[in-house]
Structure formats: C-alpha cells, structure tokens
C-alpha cells in the first residue's frame, strides 16, 4: 500500500511532460474493481441459489426481493422517516457523550488531581458492560426516547474519554517545554500544543465511539420502539418479512460505513500535517 502511495505522488513531479492525468492510473483502478469482485460474486450466487430453490426465500429473502423492498420503503417514505428518527437518536447521544467526555478527558488529562478524581472512577465503570445497564435505564428513564439516547451516549462515551486522555498524556513534554520558553501561557499551551497533539488519538476514539453508538442504537431500538430502523426490523419480524429485516441490516451497515467515512474526511482535513497523509495528497 505504502509503495503505491509513494509511486502515486512521485509520478506527477517526476514526469511533468506526461499528458494531463485522467484519474488514478489504470492498475490502481483495477485494484479498486478487484476489491469489489468477491462481494458482488457472492450476491449473484445468493440470488441464483434462491432462484433454484437452494435457499428458502421465507428464511432468507434473495437480493432482488431486498432491493424491491428497499425501493418500496423509500418510495412510501417509511424508510426515510425511520432513518431520520434513528439518526436523531445517534446525533443527540453522541453530542451528549462528546461534551461530557471531552470535558472529563480534559480534566483528567491536564491535572494530576483531575486524574485521581476522574480516571479511577471511569475505569471502574468501564469494566461494566454498558448494555447490562439496560434494565436499570428502563426503570429510571422509562421505555421512551430517553433510554435510547442514554444508551447511545453511554456507549460512545468511554472510547472518547480514553483516547483523549491517552492522547493528552502522550503529548511530548519537550514540545511543552519549548512552548514555555516561547512564552505560551497555560491556556495557549493547551490550545496550540496539547489539544492538537491529542487530536489524532481522539479521532480514533471518535471513530470507535461511532461504532459503539450504532451498536447501542440497535439494542435501544429493540426496546418497545415505535419508530426508527430498529422498530422497522422488529415490526418486520412479526410478519416474517426477512426482506425488510435485511433492508434494515443494510441500512445499519451503510450508516456505519458513512460515519467511518465522515471521520476519515475529518482526519484528512485536520491531520493534514501527518507524513502519511502528505504523501497521499
């Protein structure tokens, strides 16, 4: 991989006389195609197996049925509606997790006192599988939106806190010393040195947090929901509509992928200074 990245940057400067570039070079495009070959082949096989009766369409809907179910759900406005509800839950939960944990991560990361006060407690709580708290949450918050959002927030919370704390502690003390000599006060040191230094790790945490946020969402939406992708799936189960169930799964997968891409884009923007990214650019 790295060999290709180097080759890709070397070529424009090394051979400026070449004709204007039309997208990535051919061998790279071929590799992109190759990566999708096996999944596409599997889908075709699945469809064929269903067509000849090898797979019961009652237990597992074939791809064509899933596609048409997806189309119907989109056309009727059902899917967009439930998607919006789910997205809203994740957004609110993540926002809560981010604010809470970024502030706690800062408190613990920036002072010894903060670490003693915050870190031990959070590490203990972390040992608890957060999905085991569902019964308590239902008792405390009822079975409405609050429980679902709380689950998402809790699930996203620890990765953000842990990586931010680690990132802050990992900042090179020599850089901080240089900052002191350059006349930066504490607030400026945090702004110019500590936070940017912790950012790469914190973004890894964010990516991980998005993953657990979807996981919590799936669990949360199976608790007596009346809307959301999870509700769509549970509702379809009642009617043995495996096509709709699979549409829900596909949507979950796409959401996860999309979130990952979002963080990657964020990384490319904010971590442009990293050598690996400089090479790709």
């Amino acid at each position: 991989m790295s060999g290709q990245a180097i080759a890709a940057t070397a070529s424009p400067s090394a051979t400026p006389a070449r004709a204007p570039r039309r997208g990535p070079p051919l061998h790279r495009r071929l590799i992109n195609v190759r990566r999708f070959l096996v999944p596409v082949l599997l889908v075709i096989l699945w469809q064929l197996a269903a067509d000849v009766g090898l797979i019961s369409t009652r237990l597992l809907a074939p791809p064509a049925a899933i596609a048409s179910a997806a189309w119907e759900l989109i056309a009727s406005g059902e899917l967009p509606y439930h998607l919006l509800v789910s997205l809203q839950r994740v957004a609110i939960g993540l926002a809560i997790a981010l604010t809470a944990r970024v502030s706690l991560g800062l408190i613990a990361g920036l002072s010894k006192l903060g670490e003693d006060a915050v870190d031990a407690t959070l590490q203990m709580l972390r040992a608890l599988p957060f999905l085991a708290l569902v019964p308590l949450f239902i008792l405390w918050l009822g079975i409405g939106e609050a429980t679902k959002i709380a689950l998402v927030a809790l699930g996203a919370t620890f990765p953000i806190y842990l990586t931010l704390f680690g990132g802050i502690r990992g900042v090179d003390p020599k850089l901080l010393e240089a900052g002191r000599i350059l006349g930066l006060n504490r607030a400026e040191q945090i702004r110019h040195i500590i936070l940017p230094g912790a950012l790469p790790q914190a973004l890894v945490g964010l990516r991980y947090a998005l993953g657990t946020a979807w996981l919590s969402l799936v669990v949360g939406e199976q608790i007596n929901a009346t809307a959301g992708i999870g509700f769509l799936v549970m509702d379809a189960r009642e009617f043995l509509r495996t096509d709709i169930i699979l549409v829900g799964l596909v949507v979950y997968a796409l959401l996860g992928l999309g979130a990952d891409q979002l963080v990657r884009a964020l990384e490319r923007r904010t971590l442009a200074w990293r050598p690996s990214l400089i090479r790709e650019a």
Binding site: K174, L184, W273
Partner: peptide, 24 residues
C-alpha cells in the same frame, strides 16, 4: 528576552513552518 535552540528541533508538527516561528 531569552531564546533557545534545542538539539532536536521541537517544532509543532501540526503548524506550518511560519506559524511555528511566529508562535508565542
């Protein structure tokens, strides 16, 4: 007014060169 040049450059990698110079 004191200034130090260290053995290792101790530049902030996330700031372009001129911002490193202007820092502080």
């Amino acid at each position: 007014r004191r200034a130090v040049v260290f053995q290792e450059p101790r530049l902030l990698p996330w700031k372009p060169v001129w911002e490193n110079v202007a820092l502080g």
